[in-house]
Design a protein around this nucleic acid. Sequence first.
DNA 1: CCGTATCCCATGAGATACTG
DNA 2: CAGTATCTCATGGGATACGG
Lengths: 113, 113
Amino acid sequence: MTENKKYCCPVAAAIDEIGGKWKPLILWALKDQTLRFSEINRELPAITQRMLTKQLRELERDDLVNRKVYAEVPPKVEYSLTAKGKSVIPILKLLCDWGEEYCKSKICLNVLE
Amino acid sequence: MTENKKYCCPVAAAIDEIGGKWKPLILWALKDQTLRFSEINRELPAITQRMLTKQLRELERDDLVNRKVYAEVPPKVEYSLTAKGKSVIPILKLLCDWGEEYCKSKICLNVLE
DNA sequence: CCGTATCCCATGAGATACTG
DNA sequence: CAGTATCTCATGGGATACGG
C-alpha cells in the first residue's frame, strides 16, 4: 500500500495494490456502477468512514478508481472504476466463485462484515 | 485468518483464507512441487521462520496445504497443495498476469521481498 | 454529504536467540 | 532441520467527535 516499494514477484506487487480487507470489496461494489461515497458505505456497512476514505485514496493513487468531485453544496463525489480497475474484476469474479464453493460454511447473509 | 468468523460476501471469505502478504506467495511456490520447510524459505527469502510457520499452520487448518512429517533425525517435513489448494492456482495465475501487466514499475528482479 | 482529527487496540511482521 | 520463544515496532483498523 505504500509508495515506491519494489517486489520480486508480480503476485506480491498485485497483492499490494488490490489486496487487504477492503479494497477487493470496494472494487467489487463499483464493478458495474458509479457510486457516491455514502452509497459505497451503504454497500459495505461494516467499514468506517475513516477506512473508506483511506482505501479510496490509495485506489485513486494507484489509478484503480476515478474520483469526481462536483462543486455543489452539499458536496457530491462520485467514484468509478478506471480501465485498470475494470481489469481486476475478472480476478474478483473468480475469487467470488471460489469463495462460494470452498468457504460456504463461513458465509452468512445475515451478518455484517 | 481467525476461526469461526462469518462473512456476508464470498469475496471477503476468500480473502480471509488466501489473502495477506505471504499466503499467495506460499501457495504459488507450491503450485507444482512438494517442498520442505527450508525449501519454501529459500524461495521466499524475505519471510522469517516465525511467519512461515504461522502461515503454514493457517493454510493447513483451512485445508489448503498438506503437512507430512517424516519420523527421521534430522526432521523432515514436506508441504504440498491439497485439492482445495490447487483450486486457487488459476486465480493466482490471473493475479500474476495482472501484476506483470499493470505493476511493471514496482517489479524488480534483483530485490528481495 | 463527505470527509478530518484523535485516540486506541489488535494483529502483522521483523530480529534474534534457542532447542529436540 | 524445523521449528519455539521473546521482544519489539509498524500498520490496519475501530470508535467517536467534529467541520466545511
